[in-house]
Design a protein around this nucleic acid. Structure first.
Lengths: 132, 132, 132, 132
DNA sequence: GTGGTCTAGACCACG
DNA sequence: GTGGTCTAGACCACT
């Protein structure tokens, strides 16, 4: 299910992290579901096990999964996420940055909003859709 | 009035690139305006000239500025940029990625759109706002 | 088999860029082939790694190679390149300039054309030979 | 008559050199014709006198003009040019390089030859057109 | 191991 | 004065 692009400037382990989180958001993975083993996923993606391990470690750090020694990695109970003030700030800064770049390339306001709609429409979540 | 954050994970030279592009978009810098010299900006930001030079070089690659040996760097005539298919694809992929992350942190659809509006409203440029 | 001439007025990093592009045109390097690592090539050419890195970076800008962090640099899929209007104009201007110089030295029209034939005949690529 | 492009990567003084040589080749300037004074040309081109002086110095070095102290610069008697073996080699190398670049951009063999024809057709010279 | 970034210097060509 | 190139190192993140 997971697909990576080794030529992206985004690190591979981050791509894995993103895709797992996306799968959760889209409802493909639910609490308690088991992830493929590090070795299996590494083989499947043609990357070294270390890379996958790093991704899983990061996912555990972000409370997306829990790993149980000798058993595997499972989707964790999804907390009503409490983004660190800091994380959110960094995230928004990055968001603004990439937006600026896209605008500089000539992308229009509505075009950008359409992208956002598409992303949200692909999500099945019980994540609060509004927060204001 | 460029400011950098040396502790950011974003490379310094990219921060400079972003800020110059932003300044152009916001109308603070117009065609023909001269940028501070490599050495002066380096001193001001407390980085080595090489770092600033790299940023300027990247800006020239992106047709944001033109540099004239022995004279300085100037804001270029802004072409009605024709982003490479490739660049645009990468840009949108990055956009989706960061959006996913923000959504995972709990950011709402309207909140994200509001951010976009704010960004666009801060821009003074006759960049085409619509393109569909 | 890259060779540089440190006494040339052409920058070293540009010599590397040219030679890699030439190798691709001649078919010595094909899509997916791996380039020597920055450090190895630097050692081999007796230059600093930074110089080679700059060359590779430029090659990536020109879509000749793709670099994968932590892995290496590979010959990219060669797009049926669509040179920027700008690039092409600059290129042709440079071409005219050097031609003028050669003519001033006494080179004949047919001699110049013979050179071009020789260059093209040394190329193995399915680059479109005609375009008018 | 002379026009320069300050944003070119070709140094301005070289542009002047090239254009004077071109004017000679095209017959616009003949043996004995006087060139504008350094100051006058500098003013006309909006460059510093030093730049023009450097160009004239280079032109004298190449036996294109002779400068007479207190009188001015004149087109020299055009010798049946004896290009240094070295100069010619460098020139041809540069030629090949720029050709490679153009080919890499997708320029066709005939297109290139057409360019050469156009250049030669613009020339009025009694320079030997063949030399083989 | 890989490439990417950065420092602290140097020298050069250009204007 | 300007930018461009290069050296000789260092540290970092990624695979």
């Amino acid at each position: 299910m997971i697909q990576i692009n080794p030529t992206s400037n985004q690190p591979i382990f981050e791509q894995i992290v993103s895709q797992v989180k996306m799968a959760v958001l889209k409802g493909y993975l639910k609490e308690g579901d088991v992830l493929p083993s590090v070795r299996k996923l590494a083989l499947q993606l043609s990357v070294t096990p270390g890379t996958v391990a790093k991704a899983y470690s990061e996912l555990e750090h972000q409370n997306v999964i829990v790993t149980i020694r000798g058993k595997g990695a499972y989707i964790a109970e999804q907390p009503d996420s409490k983004p660190t003030e800091n994380q959110l700030k960094k995230g928004l800064a990055a968001f603004k940055g990439i937006c600026m770049d896209l605008i500089y390339m000539g992308i229009g306001r509505e075009e950008l909003k359409k992208e956002i709609d598409e992303i949200y429409d692909g999500i099945s979540v019980r994540k609060r859709d509004e927060r204001i």
